[in-house]
Design a protein around this nucleic acid. Structure first.
Lengths: 153, 153
DNA sequence: CTGATATCATTTGCATACGAATGAATTTGA
DNA sequence: TCAAATTCATTCGTATGCAAATGATATCAG
């Protein structure tokens, strides 16, 4: 096969690195898969609560009563999404809501005693999930990864 | 304030690093936010296609006709999810489906000419999206990040 | 050859996730 | 002060994402 033939093959089959788009190398695609893996790990340890539900309970445990909107800000959910999450936690008796006395637009959300018991029981499991998610990395790699990931988020 | 008072405050308020759980430092939470940011960037450049839809078209462009199930494997979607994605792409005329002649269980999926035109037009935009997603990192950091992220995914 | 097993696709149900529109309440600014 | 702009929450529509159940087809094992 001549050099021209090789060049022709490259061009026609788009095999050169510059012309060929590799989905599996794109940051967005790998980010989506890494996120999927984490969610699956989470579900394997905490089957009756989703990561967003856990995030809501953990944040309420951390900061105490707050408005639904403010909670959404803190756990990176828009208003429509946080409403659904809180509705489901409320239906299960893990949070309770009340009207803000002064600002009647606001809906205050707080843990119930059951919610507090649940989140305190689950936090150790969450630490395990974090460890397992990072298990493919060495401690040093994990620290580097978290630093860079935080810059992207 | 005495030393005992300080210790007491630490214990009661759970302010020690070991007792306090910081949601915003957990890899799962940051992973979710980084993914959200990428999806938003994607939408700002490619408004009429979602990342999963783009992934399906890009993979079909890469490997040609394949079964719906096989495509799902390649783009990390379960059977139920990939069906919805393909249904919507089909409704827009970007892919077409046909029965496998031998194995009657399989549904073959392929790009239409319109789908091919679309994905070839969009791939340059996807490269830009990848660049913008990684923009907070230096080139060296981005390479490190992608290497570690791939180990997690 | 045939019953057990496995694979492919579909459907249902539930849970994010977000844009857009809406209504109620509050804050701002001229 | 009071009309305009903003904020908070809700609702609707669309799109993943996955578990579980189901039906059709194909493969395997005895």
């Amino acid at each position: 096969m001549s050099g021209e033939d090789n060049l022709l093959r490259l061009v026609e089959a788009e095999e050169s690195d510059e012309n060929n788009y590799h989905l599996q190398d794109q940051v967005g695609f790998i980010l989506r898969k890494a996120h999927q893996r984490h969610v699956a790990l989470f579900a394997s340890h905490i089957g009756d609560l989703t990561p967003p539900q856990f995030a809501a309970l953990a944040k309420l445990h951390d900061i105490g009563e707050t408005s639904q909107n403010q909670l959404g800000m803190l756990i990176a959910m828009d208003a429509a999404t946080v409403k659904g999450v809180i509705d489901r936690l409320k239906a299960r008796g893990l949070v309770e809501v009340s009207k803000h006395e002064v600002d009647k637009r606001r809906l205050l959300v707080n843990l119930t005693p059951e919610g507090r018991e649940a989140i305190e029981r689950l936090i150790p499991l969450a630490r395990t999930i974090t460890e397992e998610t990072l298990a493919p990395l060495t401690a040093k790699e994990a620290a580097t990864f978290l630093r860079l990931l935080a810059k992207l988020a």
